[in-house]
Write a protein that binds this DNA or RNA. Structure first.
Length: 415
RNA sequence: GCGGGUGUAGCUCAGUUGGUUAGAGCGCCUGAUUGUGGUUCAGGAGGUCGUGGGUUCGAUCCCCAUCACUCGCCCCA
């Protein structure tokens, strides 16, 4: 243990952070329900194979960012670096093909061993949706519309841009990859070292390079759109028209590619300029081969994921929590009585802060800190008449109220 | 994984061109006549100056290492 610090790249979520996270999650969950997406939860770790097989042997996530370890039983397991593979595995494990189309929402922590930065942690949290079992582009439109809806609800839409592109079907991508490889081979000597490495593994990713020299070469690279076959062209055209019809603005970005191997056809990304190098806010695409690769029946799918930390940074303050009633005994001997009163009010639905310690001054001060709207002050003087003092903490006005009528009075004044 | 910046009280930061007791604001605690908060006033607690080495008569200040955060690359959510 080193100085009681959290492990690098992990963070405690104190109440204020957690409230922000919940705001994002709650809004996303509710919005997803409007579209008929139900929440599921899959395990935080899976057999390593689940990720290694599906994310692609060349992706950085698999090759250098996974938290992989051996169990006591000698099995290799991995902390999930993303959510889609687990959902796909669950789809296969539970035979959900018979329920297709399956529409799910999920949220939870993900783990990647990356260099921490603002908006990039080793344990971070995502929300995500998957729509599995629909072949047509209407699924893509629906899923993008849902993402758009959530960003709108969080008030971050004005800070983001939606970019979309087509990665084509297998045939198109294979053909384009060949053309692209040929082009970059001819400029190999001028490419950055990173891009030269990508050339053999995944030449599409070179299109995404930020290196200045690479960009000049990329500018003259073959056009992906021109190499799509008819099926792929119709597909992306339909998606684009659908977005137009729904009034969702977007930009076609022919250089937009995905780091994970399972994507095809539609790739999309809501990006922002507000988070430095971490521009992706909500990103996803279509993954028609994934379920089959996992060992299930050939099933198409499309989905996205978004980082909660990033969304929380972009979104404004979450709605304030309900203001409590503070119950304050004047002297220690009335503490039990005060706690009983607190409990009975909670049973009627009021949030109540029972004041544990300190003199009355102290307790009222704390009530103020807790943003209590009123204090119920229990003192001998009123109690002998069966009353308590009800003090409104905004106006400072107070009146003695019969104990038996407290709940009703609060109901009238503060509901 | 690579390169740059930062690291002083719970928080935000000042400061020492190396030299006896390290400061501010906010927050926290106590008090301003005994049953009343938010304002004010007066006191107070709290720091081995990230950690470990080194140089020096002496280091919080210089050097090295290490850890964490941060910016860019990379990667992506």
């Amino acid at each position: 243990m080193t100085n009681l610090q959290p492990v690098r790249g992990t963070h405690d979520l104190l109440p204020e952070d957690q409230r922000r996270h919940y705001h994002v999650k709650d809004l996303a969950r509710k919005t997803s329900e409007l579209y008929g997406f139900d929440e599921v939860a899959t395990p935080i770790f899976e057999f390593t194979e689940v990720f290694a097989r599906t994310l692609g042997g060349t992706s950085d996530i698999v090759t250098k960012e996974m938290y992989t370890f051996e169990t006591k039983g000698g099995e290799s397991v991995t902390l999930r670096p993303e959510g889609t593979a687990g959902v796909a595995r669950a789809f296969v494990s539970n035979g959900l093909a018979q329920h297709a189309p399956v529409k799910v929402f999920y949220t939870g922590p993900m783990f990647r061993h990356e260099r921490p930065q603002k908006g990039r942690q080793r344990q971070f949290h995502q929300i995500g949706v998957e729509l599995i079992g629909v072949e047509g582009p209407q699924a893509d439109i629906e899923v993008i519309a849902l993402g758009h809806h959530i960003l709108k609800g969080l008030g971050v839409l004005e800070n983001t841009t939606l970019e979309i592109n087509s990665l084509g079907d297998v045939e198109s991508r294979f053909a384009f990859r060949a053309v692209l490889t040929e082009y970059f081979e001819s400029h190999k000597s001028s490419l950055s070292e990173d891009s030269r490495n990508r050339l053999a593994k995944n030449p599409l990713r070179i299109l995404d390079s930020k290196d200045g020299g690479d960009r000049e070469i990329i500018a003259g690279a073959p056009d992906f759109a021109a190499h799509l076959n008819d099926v792929s062209k119709v597909f992306i055209d339909t998606v684009q028209q659908g977005l137009i019809d729904l009034g969702i603005p977007y930009q076609r970005n022919l250089k937009l590619v995905r780091g994970l191997d399972y994507y095809c056809h539609t790739a999309f990304e809501f990006t922002t300029t507000e988070l430095g190098a971490q521009s992706a806010v909500l990103a996803g695409g279509r993954y028609d081969g994934l379920i089959e690769q996992m060992g299930g029946p050939s099933t198409p799918g499309v989905g996205w994921a978004a980082g909660i930390e990033r969304l929380a940074m972009l979104a404004g303050d979450p709605p304030a929590k309900d203001r409590p009633i503070s119950v304050v005994p004047v002297s220690a001997d009335l503490s039990g009585k005060a706690q009983e009163l607190s409990q009975s009010l909670r049973n009627t639905g009021f949030p109540v802060e029972f004041s544990f310690t300190g003199n009355m001054k102290r307790r009222l001060k704390r009530a103020d800190k807790n943003n209590a709207r009123a204090a119920l002050i229990l003192g001998q003087d009123e109690l002998k008449d069966g009353k308590v003092m009800l003090r409104d903490l905004d106006s400072g006005e107070q009146e003695a109220v019969l104990l038996s009528a407290v709940a009703e009075t609060l109901q009238k004044k503060y509901s």
